[in-house]
């Protein structure tokens, strides 16, 4: 019952957020230059262009155009890509698995490295390894992702020649049309460098975050009490301190997943990764307005869904928080 009330409330909020995103997304359409220039050649006369504009509804007032767009969007139609001549949503969804798997790979990497790293730096702050990690994390924070990516390509693809430098490699199409690179050796190999590049953005941030929160938790009275009860160090660290460390980390971490999606644009471009981000940059170059708008809306939707999941997870690990809007 609680979960249901929470979800209904969340759904309502999501609708409002999506409406705002769609208005902003749609309103950039007029700022990206004349779509007809891309659609038709130089030879078409101005009169013909005007007729075409009328037919496409580009001369209608903004709100008329927006409402038409909204009506279509509700039916799953986000416009037709000028370049691909296919529904924009279809184009994006075909690219979605690649981006999703890249984000998943990067998340797996930075989560599995930052948790032990952060905990270690918190419980052994004076160890040389902890100092080394902390110093390294500052450097890591300040290196832009395309530099990391190009550096990795140079070392592992060019000099050592052990890693592929671009593309997804061999993929397998699952029954529901999802193309995955997880199931082949080649696909996984192709995932390594892009995932590391993308994870490198998050890793230093999370190590520092986990360390700072953990140090704070370790100095609380309940951790002192846990020691006074004679518990083993492992239990004090991982059950008493780390569970409380997780609360703020999950909140901040959830917000960072948005940043991660933003950085896929850069990563995918450097590695020619056939995902949504790479597609988006190409769409911008081609002034493929419907595709750009569709991308903004799909990414907005991912944000809303991820944040809802994060809120749900938070309530699961923090007994003091009742789901908002689900009292009683």
């Amino acid at each position: 019952m609680h979960i249901l009330a929470f979800l209904i409330r969340r759904l309502f909020q999501a609708v409002i957020v999506m409406l705002i995103i769609s208005i902003i997304g749609f309103s950039i359409q007029d700022q990206l230059g004349d779509p007809l220039r891309e659609l038709v050649g130089q030879s078409v006369s101005e009169a013909e262009r005007e007729a075409l504009r009328d037919r496409m509804g580009l001369n209608d007032p903004f709100w008329t155009q927006y409402l038409r767009f909204l009506g279509n969007a509700l039916g799953g139609d986000l416009g037709t890509s000028y370049f691909f001549k296919k529904p924009a949503l279809e184009v994006i969804l075909a690219k979605f698995p690649a981006t999703f798997e890249l984000v998943l790979g990067a998340t797996f990497l930075f989560v599995s490295a930052s948790i032990p790293g952060g905990i270690y730096c918190a419980i052994r702050p004076r160890a040389w390894l902890a100092r080394f990690i902390m110093a390294g994390s500052i450097i890591g924070l300040s290196i832009p992702i395309f530099l990391t990516a190009i550096f990795l390509i140079w070392i592992f693809a060019v000099e050592l020649g052990v890693m592929p430098s671009f593309g997804r490699g061999e993929t397998v199409t699952l029954p529901w049309g999802w193309r995955t690179g997880f199931l082949t050796r080649d696909g996984l190999l192709h995932l390594v460098l892009p995932s590391i590049s993308l994870a490198a953005i998050m890793l230093p941030l999370f190590i520092r975050l986990i360390r700072a929160e953990m140090i704070e938790t370790l100095s609380t009275e309940y951790v002192r009490f846990a020691w006074a009860k004679g518990l083993a160090a492992r239990r004090v660290w991982f059950v008493h301190a780390f569970r409380n460390t997780l609360l703020p980390v999950v909140t901040v971490g959830g917000l960072q997943i948005g940043t991660l999606i933003a950085y896929t644009i850069l990563t995918e471009t450097v590695f020619q990764w056939p995902g949504m981000g790479f597609m988006f940059l190409e769409a911008v170059k081609r002034v493929d307005t419907p595709l750009i708008i569709a991308y903004i809306i799909v990414v907005g939707m991912i944000f809303v869904i991820v944040n809802t999941i994060v809120d749900l997870v938070y309530t699961l690990i923090n007994p003091m928080v009742k789901l908002p809007g689900a009292q009683g």
Binding site: T220, E221, Y222, V223, R224, F225, A226, W227, A228, K229, G230, L231, V239, H240, R243, N244, L247, I317, N318, P319, M320
Partner: peptide
């Protein structure tokens, strides 16, 4: 610790772990 010599802390609002 906590077995043969036990301790009672000052502020019960802070002594117990909130998530357990």
């Amino acid at each position: 610790r906590g077995n043969r010599i036990a301790m009672i802390f000052q502020d019960p609002m802070m002594t117990l772990n909130p998530v357990l």
